[in-house]
Write a protein that binds this DNA or RNA. Sequence first.
DNA 1: GAGGTGAAGGTCAAAGAAGGTCAAAATTTC
DNA 2: GAAATTTTGACCTTCTTTGACCTTCACCTC
Lengths: 153, 153
Amino acid sequence: MGSLADYIEEYIKRLFQEATRDVIEIQRSQLAKMFGCVPSQINYVLSTRFTVENGYIVESRRGGGGYIRVIKINRRALPDVSAMIADGLGDALTEAEADRMLDRLQDLGLITEGERLSAKAVLSRELTGIPRELSPLVRARLLRGILTLILRQ
Amino acid sequence: MGSLADYIEEYIKRLFQEATRDVIEIQRSQLAKMFGCVPSQINYVLSTRFTVENGYIVESRRGGGGYIRVIKINRRALPDVSAMIADGLGDALTEAEADRMLDRLQDLGLITEGERLSAKAVLSRELTGIPRELSPLVRARLLRGILTLILRQ
DNA sequence: GAGGTGAAGGTCAAAGAAGGTCAAAATTTC
DNA sequence: GAAATTTTGACCTTCTTTGACCTTCACCTC
């Protein structure tokens, strides 16, 4: 603990404590000036500390009146099981593997039959036209995205 | 939120709230004076915020007694639009395009803020580690999949 | 009714104001 | 001392603001 990035992180987190909602807004250049660093340092902090994995979403707008908005997302609902599945799902999947995974989730009662079929439909639709060698990669991403959406509730 | 354009947008939207019909009329030069800006600023706001995509139509007439009329498009017609959007979403998307699309869908009331944020979270998470040149492609597929799931209900 | 006049609104491009990206350099950690 | 993390800076993209110049329209005069 002690790097500039750490201090900036702390500062932003303090802003959340003072805020009434789980949203804060900053101005990159102003914050940079405040910490006496280059603006891109702020991006560094945001991209290493305020990631989705850490429970944050960052939005921004350029131009006059631009801003950076950091949103804290509430993930209390994400059961460990689903997180495990989503994490352990890997970076590439064959169609058969995807099917097996969906079947297993349905067996476990984590998704309904309708959800399983929707997932399959989306997978098949969004994979058409994707080069063969990329399919497993895109399939894995898609499936993980689908599961995240279904299991989040 | 903070640019002049944002305030003018807000003002116009407030006019709609106060109006009994989904039509309001303004005078460009008078509005410009009210906000202390050049008249063309009003055109800028209209052409960036009150587009057909965002659910508005703008009509105007020049000359003496001229006016600008902004019409809010009826929402009942929108369910098909959502399918259209999902279909017409194309094969490649930049992050900004994806964001804009999600914003628009939220504005139209087709997705909730929570859904929009989930979608963003999924997109951001599933795109990490994807080679740069593939991102737009994978992003388009992911977003279409996500929207299909969200909108089918 | 032709033509002028002033009162709208329209267009477009340049200047200004943010924020983004990427890779090299510096520093810290192991 | 190698690997990981942090810091910096050069260069890029996007959005906003402004101003000069253009077009259209109602109305008036002859």
